[in-house]
Design a protein around this nucleic acid. Structure first.
Lengths: 353, 353
DNA sequence: TTGTAGGCGTTATCAG
DNA sequence: CTGATAACGCCTACAA
């Protein structure tokens, strides 16, 4: 009974705000029809200055905000873009998201993220859950195939594949120019006179990892340089993986003169392993990475790397989805390669810098 | 005319999928009422095995997925949680998001992110845009005040402040135990015999930065250790800021014997500065950081740091919002401190390890 | 166990 | 310039 009366008191004290205001409330208070209110909020038709003023005042007093669910029910668009992520690789991931977010904001979209999908069933579940909540989708899960995508997507939702195997035709794809980057870095290492160059591979089954490996091999092949399978340990894209791989490499005979890691995290792990083993970089062994994450310029020695405009990648992806949403018909689907550049610092033993 | 007939042909070939299926289509094909279909999908009432089978089949053939907009219009919930982020600090940020995402997923929620808000008006815009699209909110913008929050939020949307100034009463807050962590690390440095300890401050106006500074000062004061204002340069939480601050410190007389950075990124910048200057860590100067990001164990020398369970922080935040959503009434709003631990590696010159 | 019908809050199409 | 009013797709009493 006591609690009952307390409740009643509370109800009374804040009675006017018991329900969030609707367009109808605003219309009533401003003494116009809901249609007029709607027209004003969407700039979708003429509204007299007088009505405009009254509506504005009423809306502010009622703290009115349109119900987005109702809007998108009739509009058939949510202004939300979905982003499907793989297991996240530290700084690389955070940069991509930053780019995606800023791009989306600039175009008036929101971002719905869903990360850490390992197996296929999880991806399918995420895909289904996004259905109907998003106007477009950016997919970054390397191991998804076009068929799965099509099967679990609401037909008509534009998709852009980011860093995925673009094998499935008919889907927009955006990729880093991994092969060219790895090729260029390997050539650079070769040009420095390092003959025996090892490579620390990225995650198994990852497209970026595979393409980078390919670029490395192509450069070596072309130069007719020495090469052994043992010089290609896998580091899984993590610092600890790179550390372990570097230790393996140290035991190789002949020992490689340079180590090119498929990403910076692994290169950092390798740097630490060499340091602990008392092997001096770059004098005894040169090191290079891929991605050029912010930390790269602050390792000891500073890390040479292949610069990837990570945030720009995210922004570009956003632009592609939005383009697909806007001009849904007759826009050609194609693969786009984002160019990379070499950043030479001290870890690779180049004379300058 | 030609194009007209082409169009017609296309329409014919894919006529059945011209419009995404609704619950009504499923009901018709399964020869039941929409109510029965709804009951089955929401497990909100009895459905005979026979009907169940037919509905299931129809839904699959039609590739039916409920329209979320319509659902949340009537249900008044979207199963979406909003996350408001500040400018993003690399790895720290990506770890938090990972925790948030995994926590949300486990509870059947989606995550709508919105990042990089600097000034107040941007925050307000983001807040307003989230209105009505989210069931709850996690706010990580340090410079937002409770009043702004209340003014721009739909009333009734639960909020959890993450790493923000919890000054505003009546709002849930989750904070790292910054003071205790900084205090403990400073004590540790002191116990190692380092008398002159400098501190690289984080971003201006950031709560974490302020609390960490406070912990450092408290320990120094308590020990009666030497202290100069010049020993507290600001590094803005970035690697390059830490680098610059370290250079400043090197010019101090007397020169500090240890440097405690308010986060690991700055500590890494400092490490690099000392290395370049030929100052050996930890022999000539000890270094310690805060956060214990993954990279910390791979710097040279490995970085001593205050370990923050970053991902766990995100998960905990999710649990708090969801709790608030579920038992909206009578749940006490309070501040919660996440405990931190000391991780001693080689950079601080401790004898072991 | 099932079906009917009345909203949920907006937008959009018409007449005025 | 303005106002009725019909959707949008779904949930949920209530009745059968």
């Amino acid at each position: 009974l006591v609690s009952g009366s307390l409740e009643a008191a509370q109800m009374t004290s804040r009675a006017p705000r018991t329900r969030t205001a609707t367009i109808r409330d605003v219309a009533e208070m401003a003494d116009v029809s809901v249609a007029t209110v709607s027209r004003m909020f969407n700039a979708s038709g003429p509204v007299s200055d007088d009505a405009r003023r009254r509506i504005h005042r009423a809306a502010r007093r009622l703290r009115y905000a349109p119900n987005e669910a109702a809007r998108s029910l009739i509009t058939r668009r949510s202004s939300v873009l979905g982003v499907l992520l793989p297991d996240l690789y530290g700084e690389f991931f955070s940069e991509v998201i930053r780019g995606i977010d800023s791009g989306a904001r600039r175009h008036g979209y929101h971002v719905l993220v869903s990360g850490a999908h390992n197996d296929r069933s999880q991806i399918e579940a995420a895909l289904r859950a996004m259905r109907g909540r998003v106007d477009g989708l950016i997919v970054m899960s390397p191991d998804i195939d076009a068929a799965t995508l099509k099967a679990n997507l609401a037909s008509g939702v534009p998709v852009v594949l980011l860093n995925c195997d673009p094998a499935g035709r008919g889907i927009d794809a955006l990729n880093i120019d991994n092969a060219a980057g790895a090729y260029a870095m390997t050539r650079h290492l070769l040009s420095l006179g390092h003959e025996r160059i090892a490579f620390i591979r990225g995650a198994e089954g990852n497209v970026d990892a595979a393409e980078r490996l390919e670029g490395y091999r192509a450069a070596l092949r072309e130069a007719g340089a020495e090469h052994h399978d043992a010089w290609e340990p896998c580091g899984g894209f993590t610092e600890s993986g790179g550390h372990a791989a570097a230790l393996t490499l140290l035991r190789c005979r002949p020992r490689p003169r340079a180590v090119f890691a498929a990403n910076d995290a692994m290169a950092i792990g390798a740097l630490s392993a060499f340091h602990d083993a008392g092997v001096v970089v770059p004098d005894e062994i040169a090191v290079a990475g891929f991605d050029d994450i912010p930390t790269a310029r602050f390792t000891s020695p500073p890390l040479s790397s292949v610069h990837v405009p990570i945030a720009a990648l995210g922004e570009r992806a956003i632009e592609r989805v939005i383009h697909a949403i806007t001009k849904k018909n007759r826009h050609k689907r194609h693969r786009e390669l984002v160019p990379v550049t070499l950043v030479v610092r001290r870890s690779c033993g180049a004379p300058t810098q």
